[in-house]
Design a protein around this nucleic acid. Structure first.
Lengths: 145, 145
DNA sequence: CAAGTCACTATCAAAATGATATGAACATGA
DNA sequence: TCATGTTCATATCATTTTGATAGTGACTTG
């Protein structure tokens, strides 16, 4: 889709989608959040064509969600590490996963557990102000003047 | 991307992306969550080509996020209303919006406010079990046997 | 020095997108 | 009656993106 007009939109959701609005990018961020860093790790994990992976990694790097880090001078090799923006995208993915579990959870499914307690995570989005679960109260959009 | 293999994957995030893994679908769900229901409302709001809109609405309906409802017999006219699955997708969008605000929030931006209190919403994802903000504790994947 | 690893790039067919025009089934107003 | 408007699309088609496969360059390892 044409992202040019979207990125200037007032809507923060549209803004977000401008840089991470496709499935591959989100899956790369998922894998990066789980510790993958290298081209071939991503390629094998996702079964993605190398052309696409190259492009996606470049975009995510340009957009400031990933950062290239040289881990070998000879031969020159880079790995991709999450920036703060990239790390902060994880909650979106986790919530998407919770939705997927609830509505597309047939058959066997991976679980996300707290690495320390081992207990399964039950992600919910809440309004930090009221503490209310998002979706339980009607939302209105306030457009800027 | 080829969604066929993804949908069978163990990963709930990949499962979620199978049905809502593109920007248009998410923006349609955003608009639907804000009350839009009709073809032309979506078309005008999004500036989307009618071919694409038709296809996306059909997919979202097949996937069970939207439901067609006849609102006029003559001429036959349908509108698209959110199902429970569609409504439950809102938190994902709101969180994506919060990310967009934080990292792509230059210039004027719409705000999401509680329709009753008028107060701005500050969405966060937390683990309902521990109450901890998602991302503050390391996550591990438990693959099914 | 042959084979392997890693991070790509080249090529190209197939699929998706998006702009524009058109259609079908009516309602409305002159 | 008849032109015009509304609404939800479909048809056509050029452009763009995709994805599969093969290849490359700079090494390392046995």
């Amino acid at each position: 889709m044409n992202m040019k007009n979207l990125s200037n939109a007032f809507c923060p959701i549209a803004r977000g989608l401008t840089c991470v609005g496709d499935a591959w990018s989100m899956l790369i961020l998922r894998d990066a959040s789980l510790g993958l860093m290298r081209f071939d790790e991503f390629r094998k994990s996702l079964g993605i064509a190398p052309t696409i992976l190259t492009r996606r990694l470049a975009t995510l790097t340009e957009e400031g969600l990933l950062e290239k880090r040289r881990y070998s001078e000879r031969p020159p090799r880079d790995e991709y590490v999450l920036t703060a923006a990239g790390r902060d995208f994880l909650p979106v993915l986790v919530l998407l996963g919770a939705w997927g579990r609830q509505y597309r959870g047939e058959g066997r499914l991976a679980r996300y557990v707290d690495a320390e307690t081992g207990e399964e995570i039950e992600p919910v989005a809440v309004d930090a102000v009221t503490g209310a679960k998002i979706g339980t109260r009607p939302i209105r959009v306030a457009t800027p003047e």
